[in-house]
Nucleic acid binder design. Structure first.
Lengths: 367, 367
DNA sequence: CCTCTTGCCGAAACCGGTTTCGGTGCTGAA
DNA sequence: TTCAGCACCGAAACCGGTTTCGGCAAGAGG
């Protein structure tokens, strides 16, 4: 059953095993194991000797061998949702880089799987748990009511959220404060002179949608503008949906001179539709998105947006998850950060009043 | 040392172990193991009974437990290079999806790590090998002379290339035939009426650069155009480099009316520079790229390019690698596919002659 | 001086598999 | 009839760790 097409002369030095360390010190492997794992019934002097010798021999325990007894493989799990049209994909590499480098630093590894549907995701996670391939999970794209959280809670498997959720009980998380970004965006547009600022929300059910929407609302109130449902849309995280919602908002009696979007893909759809209607984006209509997708830098004009540092997010999440797996209290494992505003051409002073805009749109749509 | 914040009433059913299967059949676990692993000294009838009972109990071996004896963990390794400005990142998610789903189908898993430099990558792979976290590797972005291949060969660790390499001896691979794409692009441009077709190559040392460059050359010869070094550039896989090379090619005595690029990022740089010079891309100057990056769809006009199906590539590579690890001959594990041409606005009939173009550029650059 | 802790470590079982070795029972040839 | 040979399976060692249990010696307390 063994494949052996190796040239015999080329053989790497065999790994040091725990018994090698034990023998070199005249101890038993039991003592070495306990010394390295911080058991209290080992004297500090022997512990130091063991540590030193282990380093000298380049010994580190084989995670499989540990896992067979402990059930833990020093591995972080993540299941990526793929196949749907959300703008999160470009960041996956950076995100994984963050996770991976933080994991490597602690001598952990990263086990990655993908799923297309929610059931698929649950099944895949179940498989990884069952096979003990992952000791805990990073959960991106959290929902207000998230089945993954329910499942992991039930099985008491550690996890950490990239985002927040409706019932944060027992949840560790790292999140970017999208509410602050949206509020800042409203203030920015207001500062530019906009008085009709519309909003288009993101995917239904996702927690980020709820917070960004709340941030818009808080921003509107902060600058003393009325909240008008006629210029507020939602459920749009694709270009097509953005175009559709743009049509709806621009058809309002008092259309917005600026539209804030919960996602860049939606914002790009708004830009495209506005251009098609003969509106100059970043003049007749201002648009701000969120995510910092690379496409935004190539649309005309470039899209103002909020950039998220996915690598840093991955770093934080991996560290949080490792600490969670080691038993720390989830309430102590919560961190947040801010997105960085990229002030680009699509957001500028209004060059049309809402009334003029309405006229223009009416003419352009032939109504 | 054990964390136990689990509610005791919620306990998942324990996994079936090999001894459960053995006991249920009145056999020893040795027999069960050999039966499931295809040893010849087990009668077909017993083998069938074992298989059936294993399925009934939902038994499958724990890969760690196997790994401790066999050294193999049923895990595919991949180390992604991050941090440099290449346009491959958007596809990472799809690529991983392909790898992951093919691996899952065989009950394998995917261990992902990242590295920033080449030494970092070699060290990371070494760590994964040493820790037996990966039984083999997928190597993307292969170079003509690839250190990773040298290392894995020396250690006789199985691997499979996404791409090809200078010395394919003992290499299994999957690759997209970039040479065919480039040749097709030349023919396409020639068919549109272009007679001065320039070319800008990709990153030095990468094998894809060599094949795409050869494809351009073959295409040029096929349509009976002269190869002119004055309108051929190279080493450009970023926007900035694309802009720089565009300047150089357009400053030629007989500038190209169409520029073919080995990468989309380079092509986008060419487009940007051309626009800055007052040239209408997809009219005064045609541009074709390669990769199918999402940014291309948002530039003005949208970039004609070749799309690569990363998910399918991942599927093939995972299957090839698994077969390689199982001992199949690398020479039998070589597959190729074609990129799909996306005919978009940046490539069109020439609206200026080379001479006119030269005049225009001279005026625009003030020379 | 004797017992009782306490600190520290060794012996051995254990985790869940794989693999070596040896021993049946049966068949076929001498 | 006997014995070699083969097909098939059990017993036990093994992989590289962790954990339980118990034992020894030194120090504390009476």
């Amino acid at each position: 059953m063994l494949v052996s097409d190796s040239k015999p002369e080329e053989r790497r030095a065999p790994r040091a095993r725990i018994s090698d360390v034990a023998q070199a010190l005249g101890l038993t492997k039991a003592t070495v194991s306990r010394a390295l794992n911080g058991y209290p019934d080992i004297s500090e002097s022997t512990r130091a000797r063991v540590r030193h010798k282990a380093a000298e021999l380049g010994y580190s325990p084989l995670s499989h061998a540990q896992a067979i007894r402990t059930g833990r493989a020093r591995s972080l799990g993540i299941v990526l949702q793929v196949g749907d049209q959300d703008g999160q994909r470009p960041f996956v590499a950076d995100f994984l880089a963050g996770l991976s480098s933080a994991a490597s630093a602690e001598n952990w590894t990263l086990t990655v799987a993908t799923a297309t549907t929610e059931e698929d995701m649950l099944a895949t996670m179940g498989r990884l748990i069952d096979e003990r391939k992952a000791d805990g999970f990073v959960l991106p794209r959290t929902k207000v009511a998230d089945e993954r959280i329910r499942m992991l809670r039930r099985l008491s498997i550690p996890f950490v959220l990239f985002g927040r959720t409706g019932d944060p009980e027992s949840c560790a998380y790292f999140d970017i404060l999208g509410e602050d970004a949206m509020a800042l965006a409203v203030r920015h547009l207001h500062g530019l002179g906009h008085r009709r600022i519309g909003y288009i929300g993101g995917g239904d059910g996702f927690y980020y949608s709820a917070v960004r929407s709340a941030g818009y609302r808080a921003g509107i109130e902060a600058v003393d503008l009325p909240f008008d449902p006629a210029i507020v849309g939602g459920g749009a995280y694709t270009v097509d949906a953005g175009m559709r919602e743009a049509d709806r908002l621009l058809a309002a009696d008092e259309p917005p001179t600026a539209i804030l979007c919960a996602t860049d893909m939606c914002a790009l759809g708004v830009c495209r539709r506005a251009s098609a209607l003969g509106l100059r984006v970043g003049g007749d209509l201002s648009v701000i998105g969120y995510d910092g997708v690379p496409e935004g830098a190539w649309s005309t004009p470039p899209l103002a947006t909020f950039e998220v540092d996915s690598r840093v997010a991955g770093l934080h999440l991996a560290n949080l998850l490792i600490r969670r797996i080691r038993g720390e209290n989830p309430a102590d494992l919560r961190e947040t950060a801010h997105a960085r505003f990229l002030d680009r051409g699509s957001a500028a002073r209004p060059m049309m009043s809402s009334a003029e805009l309405r006229e223009h749109v009416a003419r352009a749509t032939g109504r």
